[in-house]
Simulated scan of single mutants.
Amino acid sequence: MDLAMPGMDGVQATRRITELGLGAKVLVVTIHDEDEFLVPALKAGAAGFLNKSAADTELIGALEAISHGHSYLPQHAAALLARRETQGASNRETGREMSLSPKTVEGYLARAKAKLGFHTRREIVRFALEAGLLRTEDER
């Protein structure tokens, strides 16, 4: 699913597709920035999110993950989830904020850990801080 389409944007189309209840999985493949569109796409029911700049190397893996019932998110999603964790949000709170189940949030965290080679949430947070994807309270 692309996000920029004539007539209906990709988030709206994703929402409609998932509301049909046909079991179709939607992978958003877009040039748009994850910061702005990741959460709306997930809230609409997307099973994955991939930037077109990475599609040449990650598309097959994303499709395989989604076809096996998993989700697919870019590294940047790990930083988004880490940001939520540093604010004290539980999987349940994060899920409520993103319109996802706590199990889905747990799955995203597990996938981010596996993709980045991490074992703990603390490692994800450290990675996000070092990469400049997350700021401490003092830096805000």
Rank of each mutant, 00 (worst) to 15 (best):
A41R: 09
L73D: 11
D33H: 13
M98D: 08
R84L: 13
V28L: 06
R92Q: 15
I31S: 15
K52W: 11
I60N: 05
I124R: 04
M98H: 10
L134E: 01
E106A: 12
G23M: 06
M1N: 07
S67A: 13
S53N: 08
R111H: 15
E130F: 08
A78Y: 07
L133H: 13
A54F: 15
M8L: 07
E106P: 00
L109C: 00
A4I: 15
A82L: 00
G21L: 11
A24D: 15
L81G: 03
L100V: 00
A47D: 13
A131V: 07
A44P: 03
G69N: 07
A128C: 03
Y72V: 10
K115Q: 08
P74I: 06
Q87P: 02
E106C: 07
K52R: 09
A82G: 06
L42N: 01
A110H: 10
P6Q: 08
V29N: 03
R126A: 07
F127Y: 14
S90D: 00
I60S: 09
G117Y: 10
H119D: 15
G23D: 12
D138W: 15
L133I: 00
A89K: 10
E106T: 01
K113F: 05
F127V: 02
K43M: 02
P40A: 02
D138V: 14
S99W: 13
L100I: 01
L80C: 11
L50M: 06
Y108P: 04
R16S: 02
L73T: 14
S67H: 09
R92Y: 12
K115R: 15
G88I: 01
E64P: 05
H119G: 14
E85R: 08
I31N: 12
I66W: 08
R15I: 04
V28G: 03
R83K: 13
Q75G: 14
D35Y: 11
L73Q: 09
K113S: 07
